[in-house]
Each structure stands twice: as structure tokens, then as C-alpha cells.
Amino acid sequence: MILLGPDLTTAGFNEEINLNKSKALYVEYEVLLPGESDVHVEKNIFLGSAVKIELSCRLADKHSHMKILQVTWKKGNETIKHINKTEISWGIQLTVSENRKLGSYTCTVTGEKEFSVVFHLQVPQIAGREKPVVSYKGDSAILICESRSYTPIAWTWYMTNGSEQIAINDSLMLDKYVIDKADANVTHLKILKLTEEDGGTYWCEAAFELGKSKGKLKLKILSLMVPLKPFLAIVAEVVILITLIFVFELYSKKKEKRAEDEKEFDQIEQLKSEESNGVESNSARHRKV
């Protein structure tokens, strides 16, 4: 039996509960209702194989005095007959042997306040990769999916072509796709000789006794020029900077030379003026004599 206490029953809390690989024939889950009418409790239970299961909800002891008016168990909108385990605990028993038995089961307790918990029974989720896998044109890439709780019966890879998903199997381009089946809980898809067309969305699908589950991965292909762009940008900036410095130095030298030429010209003109003034003074003296 797995008991989830009040410390776990918080608003919007969503806990993943996985059956272990021993494939137990019978399991029981009991949730302690939080005692706050505005708190919505949800529990995920992942099932990969057939199992007998009991789901129950129970009020905390501090609410045992509350007068219970109605207890309702539902699968979707369908009301299910439940059992009274105790005065403050109610449950349902299921044999989950096929996919249609999976889904959401809700326990609602109505009294002075209303409490509820939703059990989501579903096939195990597949752990893929949130961020895109990045590789370069002409190189290779490896996409990885994993089932952490149950061992799948089989794995299948798909690539997306527009709105269509195309299965990647052993007969599809052996020189392009390689599927590693060494570990039953993990699958690797190796894509060789990457082109820009290989970029896009890929799916890994795990088949379980109770249904199938998919993981989504994205592959991004970069050109070999992409990693060089920052370097080329830096080189371009350096070239521009050196060119500006060279032009500035050349301009400064020309300006200095022009200033020197003007200064020399002014000195020559001043000397000529002084010589001219000296000649005129001498002529004036001679005339006075």
C-alpha cells in the first residue's frame, strides 16, 4: 500500500507514481484529503502492465467529526460504485487489464466543505530531451529516449514529413539510420551523413501491455559556416578598426605636413616682408641726406 500524507496534498500538486519493474499483481493507493475546500489534488499513476488496483481517499483525523452528506467516485462523467472502508475512507477496486480502463478517476467528498482528488491512470511517460539536439551538416547525431519505470515490449522511431509521421525501421536506408537495441529500456537512433533536410521533429514510441507512449525530440542542423560566423565577425571588426587607425594616421600626417608647409610659407613671407621693409628704410635715409 502507498499512503500519500497531508504534506503532499498541496494546491496544484502533481506527483508521478511509478509501479516498479516487479509488476505487482495488486497495489493500493490512498490519498489523505487536505481539509481545504479550495485545494485541488491530482496524482499521476503510471501503469505499464495489467494490475489489480485499489484507489481510496480519506479525510484527515481532524475532520473526522464532519458530517458527510455524499461521497461520489467517477471515471470521467460516469459514476462508479464505491466501498466504505471506514467512516472517513472510501475506495474503488479495479482490474486494469486493457487501455480503456486507464483515465481519470475522481473522488469527491461533500459535507460542510467539499474535498476532491483526481487519480490519473496512464501508461508510462517517455523521457526524451527538452532542448533540441544540435549537430552539423555532414556529421552524425544520436537521439535518445528512455523508459524509466517499465520495460517496453517494443520501440519504434518516427520522423516527421510535413504532417505525416514515417516509421524508421531496419529496412529504411540502412546507410542513413541505425537503431541501437542493446538496452530494452533505452533506444538510440543514430542519423548518419546529416543534411539540412534531416532537421526537424522525431518521435520515439514505446509499446506497453496497456498502450503506447511517445517521446518528442528535435534535431537542428547547422552549416559548417555557422561556428565561423562569430570568428569572421571579429576578424571583420579588427580589419575595420585597423583600417580606421591607418586612415586616421594618414590623415594626421597629411595634416601635420600641411601645417608645416603653411608655417614655412608664412616664415618665407615674413622674411620677404622684413627684407622689403629694410630696403625701403635705406632708400629713405639716402634721400634725407
Rank of each mutant, 00 (worst) to 15 (best):
T110W: 00
S149Y: 06
Q125Y: 04
I144V: 15
S149V: 06
V186C: 12
W155G: 01
T151W: 02
L189T: 04
Q125T: 12
E164L: 14
D180T: 01
C107E: 01
I168D: 04
A154V: 05
S135K: 10
V134A: 03
P132W: 06
I144F: 09
G162N: 10
I166G: 08
T156L: 10
E196C: 06
C107V: 00
C145L: 08
I144P: 01
D139C: 05
S147H: 04
W157I: 04
I179H: 02
E197D: 14
E114L: 03
S135W: 04
N161G: 03
E197K: 14
N185K: 13
A141D: 03
G128L: 07
K190F: 01
G128M: 08
S163N: 12
T195A: 11
K190Y: 02
K113M: 15
I144S: 07
L172K: 15
I191F: 10
P132M: 09
P152L: 07
K190V: 07
L174S: 13
K190D: 01
A141P: 04
L194G: 09
K176S: 12
V133F: 04
H120I: 14
G111V: 00
S135V: 02
D183A: 09
H188I: 02
V123Y: 04
E146C: 07
L194K: 11
W155A: 02
D139N: 13
L121I: 11
I153N: 13
V109Y: 01
V118G: 00
Y150D: 10
T160W: 02
I191D: 02
A141M: 05
L192C: 06
T156S: 14
L174I: 08
A154C: 11
A182W: 00
I166M: 12
A182S: 15
I191R: 03
V186K: 15
D183W: 03
E196K: 14
T156F: 06
Y158M: 09
Y150Q: 11
T151H: 03
N185Q: 13
P132D: 06
